[in-house]
């Protein structure tokens, strides 16, 4: 029964990580460069939810649910601003320029959050309500179930948009070969901006969901960008399904392996696995893309 309980916890954590990794890989594909501010954008989503919550809690029974679309929209706008300021002016330059500019954006977000909210950990409201429910012998937090549902919904929606809609095909074309896409009449810059908006909106959703169960601090982004990077490396650089699988694998190590061994050993095992994958299968588990790692 303990194994089931831990599996459920691991799945919920992996689902939140998957949202983080998904936003990261979308921008990576569209822009061809790593957005090192992505972890801090997740943090910003959490802080945004914390800041908006008091204005909604008083008249809405499930403030987290009401906040979710608001956070998605506002974070999408932030994503546009980030791409405008930190990507577009530099996209003709060497990739390292974009790395540095996104690192700068991350530091600005961290210090901005610290100045506005202080350094203490804060909790966003739950998506529906707090507490737990009993599923037979299992005790499951309602928020964990909500994370699973929202992650499944957003990932499913993203897959549907990419596979079945014209804008999705344009986004994919831009990600696969921007020059050819431009030659075909696709507005590549607009597609890149849309991807930044979408990826950052996903970061915001992840931030809102994580900030309830695991709290949020201004410095929380550093750990999250590392996990997103590892997830994408394990899953396959540029692979969207790979990012999701990589995120679930990280959560499996954090929850499953640490339940058998210890957390430090689980972390060591995760990095050892990463090294093995890099050596034995450098393209990652779903290594369809042959993009250069940053």
């Amino acid at each position: 029964m303990t194994i089931l309980q831990l599996t459920l916890n691991g799945l919920a954590l992996g689902a939140a990580y998957a949202l983080v990794a998904l936003g990261f890989v979308l921008v990576l594909n569209a822009a061809g460069a790593v957005n090192f501010a992505h972890g801090d954008l997740v943090m910003a989503g959490g802080m945004l939810a914390v800041a908006l919550a008091p204005h909604i809690t008083s008249f809405w029974p499930a403030p987290g649910l009401a906040l979710l679309p608001l956070v998605l929209v506002l974070m999408a706008a932030l994503g546009l601003a980030v791409s405008w300021l930190a990507y577009l002016p530099l996209r003709g330059r060497p990739h390292v320029s974009v790395f540095i500019s996104t690192i700068a954006v991350g530091i600005i977000l961290q210090n901005g959050a610290n100045a506005l909210f202080g350094g203490e950990p804060r909790a966003a409201p739950p998506l529906l309500w707090g507490g737990t429910v009993a599923l037979g012998p299992l005790v499951v937090s309602v928020q964990s179930l909500a994370i699973l549902a929202v992650a499944a919904l957003l990932i499913g929606a993203q897959q549907w948009v990419f596979a079945r809609t014209q804008i999705g095909r344009r986004l994919r074309a831009t990600a696969q070969d921007p020059e050819m896409a431009r030659a075909c009449g696709i507005p590549v810059t607009a597609m890149i901006l849309a991807t930044f908006a979408l990826g950052t909106a996903y970061a915001g959703a992840a931030g809102l969901l994580l900030a309830n169960q695991f709290f949020v601090t201004p410095t929380a982004g550093g750990d999250l960008i590392l996990k997103a990077y590892i997830a994408v490396t394990i899953g396959g650089w540029g692979s969207v399904p790979g990012a999701v699988v990589g995120a679930l694998l990280i959560a499996l190590f954090e929850v499953g392996v640490s339940a058998v061994l210890s957390y430090p050993v689980a972390l060591g095992a995760l990095y050892a696995t990463l090294l093995v994958i890099l050596v034995a299968r450098p393209q990652g588990l779903f290594g369809e893309a042959a993009r250069r790692r940053a």
Binding site: T2, Q5, L6, N9, G10, L13, E120, P121, L210, Q213, F214, F215, T217, D223, A251, E254, V255, G256, S258, A259, S262, Y263, P264, L267
Partner: peptide, 30 residues
């Protein structure tokens, strides 16, 4: 426990399996 650990159920489960009569924590705030 590393500061980046998000789910502490594994360590709680293992600690309880050792049949302690008190849980003594020395952790950071979050």
């Amino acid at each position: 426990v590393d500061t980046s650990a998000k789910d502490l159920l594994p360590v709680i489960t293992k600690a309880l399996a050792a049949n302690p009569d008190v849980l003594v924590l020395h952790l950071h705030s979050a």
